[in-house]
Amino acid sequence: MATRFDACRMFSADILMSVILLIASSAVVNADGPFAALTWTDSHATFYGGTDASGTMGGACGYGNMYNTGYGLNTAALSTTLFNGGLSCGACFELQCKVAESRWCYANGGSITVTATNLCPPNWDKPSDNGGWCNPPRTHFDLAYPMFTKMAQAVGGIIPVQYRRVSCIKTGGVRFSLNGNPWFNLVLIYNVGGDGNAVSVQMKGSQTSWFAMTHNWGQNWHLSQKLQGQALSFQLTTGYGNCLSFNNVASSDWSFGQTWEADSNFNTFP
């Protein structure tokens, strides 16, 4: 069962302070960066992964097979500046080709919406204006080929675009995949609606208080605490500060390698 906001404030003073310090030190809740732009912002886009987008499976967010996790081909690899150390994973962006600036844009191409699922790494061997498209401090979207070709002809290679953050519309609840060992819990969080990206996560057993999890990579979070034999609950804070508690997502007989779907999801944005 999920409850909003009030449950997310039910930390002890010590746990709350540790979360505040974690957020302050890593700037995870930051609605001022380019990854949080709510108004149309200039950028560029390319494509990768082959014409069938098979090369976009997996990636630096940890989602694995994009069809199995519900993201499909509506995906993008973000430049380092947008990727935000993996904390932008799951965020949704609307893009439109700047028709007036490129002959490759389709005049009536409209816009596309993609989810951040991968990192477009820097290429320091090339200048940022000639091949090093994902070099900091540039913002850049490396799209799955089918998404790029909804906006422009592929022959263009790189196109000018505008982007903005938009709400992620998801079917079903937030999903949690747990791997690790009795003393190390590694949780992949995906299918997050609303803001789309978790930037702070707490976890508890039915016999414990809340523990702040540590960001591991992508949307993988870990907790070094033995919780076997207890029902598991999670609390998520998203990029714009929305908070939701998912209670007893996993029953006490859970085992590593399982995935659970909560009965609720975020629907507020931003």
Score class of each variant (00 low, 15 high):
97 C>R: 00
99 V>W: 00
158 I>R: 15
80 T>E: 06
161 V>K: 14
80 T>M: 03
98 K>D: 09
45 A>V: 14
131 G>W: 08
80 T>L: 05
164 R>L: 03
63 Y>E: 14
44 H>W: 13
139 T>L: 00
142 D>R: 04
87 L>D: 03
59 G>V: 03
165 R>N: 14
127 P>R: 09
45 A>H: 13
61 C>Q: 03
37 A>R: 01
86 G>N: 11
173 G>N: 07
90 G>L: 03
91 A>W: 04
72 G>Q: 04
77 A>N: 15
76 A>I: 07
148 F>R: 15
52 D>S: 05
139 T>I: 01
36 A>Y: 00
100 A>W: 04
132 G>C: 07
127 P>F: 08
70 G>H: 12
94 E>R: 10
99 V>E: 00
69 T>G: 11
39 T>G: 07
123 N>D: 06
49 G>A: 06
126 K>I: 01
81 T>Y: 05
100 A>I: 05
44 H>M: 06
41 T>M: 01
79 S>Y: 05
98 K>E: 10
74 N>H: 04
157 G>V: 13
73 L>E: 04
95 L>I: 14
98 K>I: 14
135 N>P: 10
143 L>F: 12
61 C>D: 00
75 T>E: 11
63 Y>W: 13
46 T>I: 06
99 V>D: 00
31 A>K: 09
105 C>P: 13
153 Q>Y: 10
48 Y>C: 06
122 P>L: 15
120 C>R: 04
69 T>M: 09
36 A>E: 11
78 L>T: 08
77 A>D: 07
74 N>S: 13
79 S>P: 09
90 G>I: 01
168 C>A: 12
137 P>I: 07
119 L>D: 10
117 T>V: 15
65 N>H: 11
48 Y>I: 08
81 T>R: 04
66 M>W: 03
117 T>G: 01
104 W>R: 02
173 G>Q: 15
138 R>T: 00
117 T>A: 03
146 P>G: 05
169 I>R: 04
162 Q>K: 15
112 I>S: 02
147 M>W: 01
60 A>Y: 01
135 N>E: 12
45 A>M: 14
87 L>R: 13
147 M>P: 01
87 L>H: 05
49 G>S: 07
110 G>Q: 13
117 T>K: 08
54 S>V: 03
136 P>M: 10
102 S>C: 02
38 L>P: 08
97 C>K: 09
52 D>P: 02
95 L>Q: 15
79 S>L: 14
58 G>V: 07
34 P>Y: 06
171 T>F: 04
156 G>T: 08
145 Y>H: 15
62 G>I: 02
63 Y>M: 13
152 A>L: 11
138 R>K: 13
144 A>I: 14
131 G>E: 09
40 W>E: 14
103 R>E: 02
123 N>P: 00
149 T>V: 12
166 V>L: 07
31 A>Y: 11
30 N>I: 02
